[in-house]
Design a binder for these strands. Structure first.
Lengths: 218, 218
DNA sequence: CATACCGGCATGTGATCACAAATCCCGCCA
DNA sequence: TGGCGGGATTTGTGATCACATGCCGGTATG
C-alpha cells in the first residue's frame, strides 16, 4: 500500500509504523493495558489494518523504550514490574522531574500557572469520577506542561520513558487505591511556582512523584 | 535462513537483528562512527550478511535510544549534537551517575576498588597512547563497573542510553583535546570509595562526568 | 488422579519484491 | 561561470511468504 497521501488535515502524512507506534504508546502510557497482557504482531497488524512489518517496528521501538517486554522467544507482553523495579523507577522520576521543575521555575510566568491550575481542576474531576485512565492522562499532562518550560528535551524524553515503563502498573496501582481527595501535592507545586520558592518546589515535586508508588511497600 | 543453531560456544543463539543491534551499538557508544555519518539499511545488511529486515529493526531500536537520527524521509545518520544538547546530556550524566555512584558506595568492597584501579591503569595507558576509541571504551568500563554495584538496572540503562547518544560526539571531542595527563578525577573517585566519603564521591563523579564536556563552551 | 508425551496451531523471524520518493549528478542555459 | 532542471539511481516502506520454534491442547500411561 505505502503512503496513501492524506487529502488534507495531516501535515506530516505519518508512516504506518509511526501511527501504530504512537497509538500503542499512548495506550500503554495511559494505563489502558494491564501488566502482563500479551500482544501479537498479527493482532496489532489487523487492528490497525497494516501488515506485520510496521507492527513489528512499532513493537521493537516500544520494547527499546521499556514500554513492552519481549520474552526470549520473542513473545510480546506489557511488563510486570517487581516492587524493586517500581521503586527504582520512582527514584528516577524524582531525580529527573525535580531537576526539570527546578529548571522550569525561572521561566514559569502567570500564563503557565493558570494553565496548570486549569489542568489540575481536570485532574480533580477525574479523581472524583474514579476514572483511572483519565486521571493518569491529565496528571501526566500537568507534569509535562510544567516540564516543557524547562527547555530540556532530552531530559523530558527520559522522564516520559519512565512514565511509559510505569504505565500498565500505574493503572493497576490507582485502581487499587480508593482516593477521592484532590491532588494536594499539585497545589503545593503551584504555590511554590507562584512564590518562586525553589526548595519548596523540589520538595513538592518529589512528594507528588513518590507518593503513589510508596503504598505498594506495605 | 533463520537461525542456523550454533553448534556450541554460544549460549543464546542470538537472532540476526540482535547481533546487528549489538555490533552497531558498541561501535556508536565507543565513538567509532563520526557525528553525522550516514548509514543505509542495505549497507548494514550486506556488511552483516543479512537482509534489510533485521538491519531495519536494529536501526529502529538504536534510533529509539537516541543513538541514531532518522531524518523525516527516513534517512539514517549518527546524531550531530548542538552545544545545548551536549550540555543537557552532560547534566543528565551528572544527575544519574552521581546517584548510581552514591548507591554503589555502601557495597563497594576492596575487590571492586582493586578492579577499578586496574581498569584505571588501562585508561591511563589509552590516554598516553592517544587512542580515542580505547579511551572511551575503558573509561566507560570504569564507570559501568562501579555502577553495577548500585543494583539499579533501570538507572544504569538510562545512563548507558546517554553514553550512546554522546558516543559519536565524544570521539570528536576527545580527538580535539590533546591531553596526556592521567585521569585525575578517577583517582578522586577511588579515594572517596576507599574513605567511604559520600559527598566527596558525588563531587568527584560530577567533576569527572562534566569535565570533558565543558571545553566546548569556549 | 497426576504426569509425561505428542501433534497441531499460533507466533516471531528473515528474505524478497514492488513501489514511491528523495537524492544525486550531469548537462544546459542565462 | 554559476545556478537550475530533469532523469537515473539510491533508499526507505510495506506486503507477502516460507520456515522454525514455542506454546497449548488432548490422551495415554504410571
Amino acid at each position: 500500500m505505502t503512503v496513501t497521501a492524506r487529502p488534507a488535515q495531516e501535515t506530516a502524512a505519518a508512516p504506518a509504523h509511526d501511527r501504530v507506534y504512537r497509538a500503542l504508546r499512548t495506550r500503554i502510557m495511559h494505563g489502558e493495558i494491564a501488566p502482563g497482557a500479551a500482544l501479537t504482531l498479527r493482532g496489532i497488524g489487523s487492528e490497525f489494518a497494516v501488515s506485520m512489518t510496521p507492527a513489528r517496528e512499532a513493537v521493537r521501538r516500544l520494547a527499546a523504550e521499556g514500554a513492552l517486554f519481549l520474552s526470549s522467544s520473542g513473545r510480546v507482553t506489557t511488563p510486570e514490574l517487581t516492587n524493586e523495579r517500581i521503586e527504582e523507577l520512582a527514584a528516577l522520576r524524582a531525580l529527573l522531574e525535580v531537576e526539570l521543575a527546578s529548571r522550569a521555575l525561572p521561566r514559569a510566568h502567570m500564563a503557565l500557572i493558570d494553565r496548570l491550575q486549569t489542568i489540575n481542576s481536570n485532574v480533580a474531576e477525574m479523581v472524583s469520577k474514579r476514572d483511572a485512565v483519565g486521571y493518569i492522562r491529565t496528571n501526566l499532562e500537568f507534569h509535562r506542561t510544567l516540564y516543557l518550560r524547562a527547555q530540556a528535551p532530552a531530559m523530558l524524553a527520559m522522564a516520559e520513558t519512565v512514565w511509559l515503563q510505569l504505565g500498565p502498573t500505574m493503572r493497576a496501582l490507582y485502581g487499587r487505591l480508593r482516593r477521592t481527595d484532590p491532588p494536594q501535592n499539585h497545589r503545593l507545586i503551584i504555590a511554590a511556582l507562584k512564590a518562586g520558592d525553589e526548595p519548596g518546589l523540589r520538595l513538592a515535586v518529589r512528594s507528588d512523584v513518590t507518593q503513589g508508588l510508596r503504598l505498594l511497600a506495605g
